[in-house]
Nucleic acid binder design. Structure first.
Lengths: 192, 192
DNA sequence: CCTTGCTATGCAACTCGTTGCATAGCAAGA
DNA sequence: TCTTGCTATGCAACGAGTTGCATAGCAAGG
């Protein structure tokens, strides 16, 4: 399991509280790894008692105190060990694909709305990714922040390549959902 | 949760035993929904006691008896209800993306082997899909079995569009993994 | 004033998924 | 003969993920 490792990576990129992590998991990291705040708090507690991360109590004004977590030595080692171990499974769960095959035994045309909704969601996410890419990586400000003559920045470039993966995924999904819609339309309008 | 629905769809496509289902989940259906035999047996038992599926004991010679399951009325209704309900989440777990971002804090070059292994796995799966497509959908035998002048066959065409989705996914992954390898190579050979 | 909503953390109960193990008959090969 | 491997089903224990709920201070708006 790798929620712990996703948290370690996120904390290495920037230390933060459980709450902040939960919000990151709704945004950037959440695009390839989902987690609720309950899971995060539970795992943080375990990681702390295992010595993987350090805590610092930070009093705040006008809002509750927070606990800022940062990665400790053993956490870095655990991450390194995981990085060097091969992973195989990549288990997949595509509800929509199950639905599409199931539609053959029900009313295929009834799925059109649903597929269109998913297409819209992927279109929105693609737009979100693309604006994030411009803001953080390819826009004028981002380019100014990055020194083109300096050494390559692995953290930045690896974040970018992961984002490009998200963009490629959304584009593929949109194209495929169009294919699905075309196929469904053939049964919705019989006699064509 | 939708393992039950995936099983219903599979049993509608063809009745079978828990063991047979487990093998289908290693092949066709397993490409977009994974499940082990334990899960399948457990869910089958629950579905049977809920009246969603019927069982028939089939004695076999030279091997243990098997229980052949088929979808009953309530199961069909449950599937229909699920098909008509919208689904949202599509929760994602891309271990490899976590690893890639994590590699910034370790040795990026050490990931090259791992990424190449994944690329190979996706290449193999793509080849598998493509040969299945020729065999079942676009090859001469498949075309002969399907009557081009007859009415469209939803079951067949929807299976095909799902398979095309798998093909598009694998192609996208291979292209992205090439992008990842190019990016990683920049850190592996510094001073380029 | 009261409600809504945000930051911030957490418990408890439940379901789902994974792993290891067990049984049992038969076939094929060393 | 002994081991390996396939069909076929299942239990038990554990770990991961989900859902509902609780607390608590502060800010903003009606």
């Amino acid at each position: 399991m790798a929620l712990e490792h996703a948290i370690l990576v996120s904390l290495l990129e920037k230390p933060g509280s459980g709450y902040e992590l939960a919000r990151r998991f709704e945004r950037s990291i959440g695009y390839f790894w989902t987690a609720t705040h309950q899971q995060i708090y539970r795992v943080l507690k375990r990681m702390e008692s295992d010595g993987w991360i350090d805590v610092r109590d930070i009093p705040q004004q006008g809002r509750p105190d927070k606990k800022e977590y940062s990665v400790a030595g053993p956490g870095r080692e655990a991450l390194a060990a995981w990085l060097h171990a091969p992973i195989e499974p990549e288990s997949v769960r595509h509800d929509l694909a199950v639905k599409i095959r199931g539609a053959a035994f029900d009313d295929p045309a009834a799925l059109i709305r649903e597929v269109e909704r998913h297409r819209q969601a992927h279109t929105d996410r693609l737009a979100h990714y693309l604006s994030g890419e411009v803001r953080d990586f390819t826009g004028p400000e981002a380019r100014a922040a990055a020194d083109p003559d300096g050494p390559p920045d692995p953290e930045r470039e690896l974040q970018h390549v992961v984002l490009r993966g998200g963009i490629a995924y959304e584009r593929m999904m949109i194209a495929w959902l169009d294919d699905v819609l075309t196929t469904l339309a053939r049964f919705g309008a019989p006699g064509s």
